[in-house]
Nucleic acid binder design. Structure first.
Lengths: 215, 215
DNA sequence: CTGATCATGTGACAATATTAACAGGTCAAT
DNA sequence: ATTGACCTGTTAATATTGTCACATGATCAG
C-alpha cells in the first residue's frame, strides 16, 4: 500500500504523523536552541524517547551517536521527508467560519504552503478578503485551479455539498484534498484525501474522560 | 494503560476512534434508513467490512447474525460506549478565528456537547456573542467553571499562552482538554488531553501526495 | 421443506507499532 | 589517559491492530 520514500525506504504511516509533530515542535523552538536530546524532545511531545529514536532510525542519518540532535539538521531532514521543501499552493472552498479560520491560519506558510484562492457560493462573502486573498464565486474555481496549476484543495463546506465540491476539485486537477466536512469524500485512484473530522476528536475525548472517571 | 469499559471490556484505542466515525456516519444518514450492512457502511467510511465487524465484536451485541444492523440500535450503543448519552458542558478559551469557528460549529449538540462559556483577553472580542454565548474576560473563567461545574475545555489560543491557559483550566476543575494550539500542553495525572494540531494533517497530506507522485 | 444467498459472529493468523535492551560513540573532569 | 555520565544507533522482543476464513443465523424463492 505504501511506497518507498525518495530515499528508497518506506516510512510507517504512524511514523510519518510523528515526523509532522517533530517538525512542528522544532519550528516552535526558540532560534537560539541549536541542539536537543531525544529525551527532552520526547518528553515535551509526550512520547517515549526510544520511539523517537526508532522513528529517526527508519530513515537513518538524523544524528550522530553520542551527540544530541542538531535542530537545524533535524528540521531540514524532516522538511525534506515530508516534501515541504518546495512551495505548494492551495485553494480553499467554503469561506464560512472554519474556512475563514483556516484562511487566517498563519502556520501554513512556515511549511511553504500558500493559500492562493478562496471560493464560496454566498454572495455576501464573495469579494471579501482574508490575508489579502479575495473570495471568489465557485464558478471560477476550476479555471483558477487549472491556470495556476494548483494541486491542494481544502474543503470547508457543509456535508451535503462536500462530495460534489470534491468531484469538481478533482476534475480541475487537484491531487490532494484536505476535507473538514463531516462527510467522508470519495476520490478516484491517484488522488489523496485526508479527512479531518472535528467531531471524532471530541468524541474520543469524551470516551477517555469516562475511562478516567472510573479510576 | 487502558481501563475496561463500563461493560467490563477494554476497547482498543483505534477502535474507539472508529466508533466515533461510525457514530458520525450514522448521524449523517437520512432518518428513514433503519438498517445498514457492514459492507455498505464500511465502503462509505473507507475501511473494510471485516474490520467494522471486528470492532463491533469487541463489545458484542451490536447486531444479530444474518440480519443487517439496526441503525437506531447502533447509534444508541455507540453513544453509550462513547459516554455521549448525558449532557456535557464545555468552555472555550480564545475567540479568534478558530475559536469562533468552533463556537459556531453545530455538530457538537448532536452529541449532547454544549458550549457554555467563551473567554478571551481581547477587549474587542469581549461582549460579542456567538450562538447566544457571550465572550467574557479571561479573569472570569475560573469562577465560571467552578460555579457551573464544567469539565471540558477547548483551547484556541496562540501557542505562547497555551500552557498557562491549560494550567488555569485544570486548576479550576477541568478534566478534559481539547487543544487546538500548535503547542502540546502538559497536564497532571487524572486530566485527559486531546491535541488537535492542524499542521499535522496538512503535512501528512503533503507526504502522501509526494508518495503518490512517485507511482 | 430445501437450497441459495446474504448477513453477522468469532477465533486464528499476519502485519504493524511500541518498547526494551544494549552496543557504541562523545565529551568533560580529573 | 581514564573514568563516568550522557548521548544516539540498532537489533530483538513484546504488544497491538488489521485481515482472513469460515461457522452460524436469517430470509426468501420455488
Amino acid at each position: 500500500m505504501n511506497r518507498p520514500s525518495p530515499r528508497g525506504k518506506r516510512i510507517p504511516p504512524f511514523t510519518v504523523l510523528r515526523f509532522a509533530r517533530y517538525l512542528n515542535f522544532l519550528c516552535n523552538l526558540p532560534e537560539e536552541v541549536r541542539e536537543i536530546s531525544s529525551a527532552e524532545m520526547a518528553r515535551t511531545i509526550g512520547i517515549k524517547a526510544t520511539q523517537l529514536r526508532q522513528d529517526f532510525f527508519t530513515l537513518g542519518g538524523f544524528g550522530r551517536q553520542g551527540r544530541k540532535y542538531d535542530t537545524r539538521v533535524l528540521e531540514e531532514r524532516l522538511r525534506e521527508v515530508l516534501a515541504l521543501q518546495g512551495s505548494q499552493h492551495m485553494v480553499l472552498v467554503g469561506a464560512g467560519n472554519l474556512g475563514q479560520a483556516l484562511a487566517n491560519y498563519q502556520d501554513f506558510e512556515r511549511f511553504n504552503l500558500y493559500l492562493r484562492g478562496i471560493f464560496d457560493t454566498n454572495p455576501k462573502l464573495i469579494g471579501l478578503r482574508f490575508r489579502g486573498i479575495e473570495v471568489m464565486g465557485l464558478e471560477h474555481m476550476q479555471d483558477f485551479i487549472r491556470e495556476q496549476g494548483i494541486e491542494l484543495g481544502i474543503i470547508c463546506v457543509p456535508h451535503s455539498v462536500a462530495q460534489p465540491v470534491c468531484d469538481a476539485l478533482v476534475e480541475a486537477g487537484i491531487k490532494g484534498i484536505w476535507n473538514f466536512s463531516p462527510e467522508n469524500v470519495l476520490v478516484p485512484e491517484g488522488v489523496v484525501v485526508q479527512n479531518e473530522n472535528l467531531s471524532v476528536g471530541i468524541m474520543n475525548l469524551s470516551y477517555q474522560l469516562s475511562i478516567a472517571r472510573e479510576d
